[in-house]
Design a binder for these strands. Structure first.
Lengths: 206, 206
DNA sequence: TGTACATCAGTGAACGCGCGTTCACTGATGTAC
DNA sequence: TGTACATCAGTGAACGCGCGTTCACTGATGTAC
């Protein structure tokens, strides 16, 4: 049993479905993006995979369990995207941080409903320790970079405070963008330029 | 007919319900906050008001129509709160703007689900011209103040850009706060202090 | 290699549920004469 | 002031719907001998 869980990524085509668990998480993620977080249904995910509506319960305890896995996968993707952005800019610390911000917003634009699931207030997601831990690791990527930039003469607390400020800012940009609020106020916002500008200002030494 | 619409705020107790339309909007707003935007039901609102489930359709075309009125009321409340915050700080322009930011976040903390309804991506809300206009008026309160602060030597475009930046920031703080994301990352954020600090930095002249 | 057996990922039919919305109706109110 | 009538905000019963979840079952797979 344990060995099967460890190689759940290999899919033998002849063995029933192969790996319905992973396929469901992927399909649900797709449907969430297509129909919205509150309008998708796992029944439809089953239909798309050619499987009975009872099949998921052999892999997950309930609907929320599937969503938890989707959220976790989302955090892993986001972390990866931020690490890539960080590594793309080896010379300039401020630019490195603003690139990470851009990749945060880009992820939200690419997967808006998954983003909402990850950062929304559903208790089934929020209270899950595994998802929490995955999210925390994501935030750590930013803290490390800000602490590096500030240098040792500044306290870790200063780095934390700045990180929260930077996170809050890009999270606001991401939220307003995917909810089309800029458009609602008839603004066309160049979010990338704005992130670069705001990052500079927030990180400016007085 | 027209004269009745104009005094929909007075409620004659003997005349059927009095003013079921306004009562429903209030009750739905209350239920949204209690049960969440995706778990409330108008049936329950009807039960709470002691009215049949068919009664709402004498006042609203459908469920979304009620939500549109809730969103509009939310924007009016938010605008009022921001104007009050602005007027409480007559001397210092930067502080005036940061007080407006604090009142934005305070509104979100007070009415998180209404806030999500107002700024979320529900098309029935987003595409409504009346709601749009009410939201726009809200944003204008900020732009005017930022333009005043910048003075005439700066373009209106500069004021707009700065306003978007400030809005994005406080919107991020509000979202992360009401979705309990600071807590999820085990942070206790002093949002008011953070807003004051970030506003100073974002408005700083180089 | 062949056979018997245990496992467990699937089926498909059924369930209870609460929802939004409709329908023909009723009866209190305001108004015209 | 009294009566007849039009209006329309309410009723209450019913509807169709799709959902998440359960149940006893089946049959392909891996394994022990």
């Amino acid at each position: 049993m344990e060995s099967r869980q460890n190689r759940e990524d290999i899919s033998k085509p002849g063995y029933h479905h192969g790996d319905l668990g992973a396929a469901l998480v992927g399909q649900v993620r797709h449907l969430i993006e297509r129909d919205g977080l509150s309008d998708f249904s796992i029944s439809e995910a089953c239909k798309a995979l050619g499987v009975s509506t009872a099949a998921p319960y052999k892999h997950f305890s309930d609907k929320h369990d599937i969503l938890r896995h989707v959220a976790k996968a989302g955090f892993q993707d986001l972390t990866l995207a931020m690490e890539r952005a960080r590594d793309s800019e080896p010379d300039d610390a401020v630019r490195r941080i603003s690139e990470m911000g851009k990749s945060y917003v880009a992820f939200a634009a690419r997967s808006p409903e998954t983003f909402k699931l990850m950062f929304g207030s559903k208790p089934d997601i929020k209270d899950d320790e595994v998802t929490k831990e995955t999210g925390h690791r994501c935030f750590d990527v930013l803290i490390v970079e800000v602490a590096n930039h500030l240098g040792t003469e500044n306290s870790a607390d200063a780095a934390l405070k700045l990180s929260i400020m930077l996170w809050s800012f890009v999270h606001g940009v991401a939220s307003l963008k995917i909810d089309k609020d800029y458009e609602a106020v008839r603004i066309e916002a160049d979010t990338n330029a704005m992130i670069a500008e705001a990052t500079r200002r927030l990180l400016a030494t007085r």
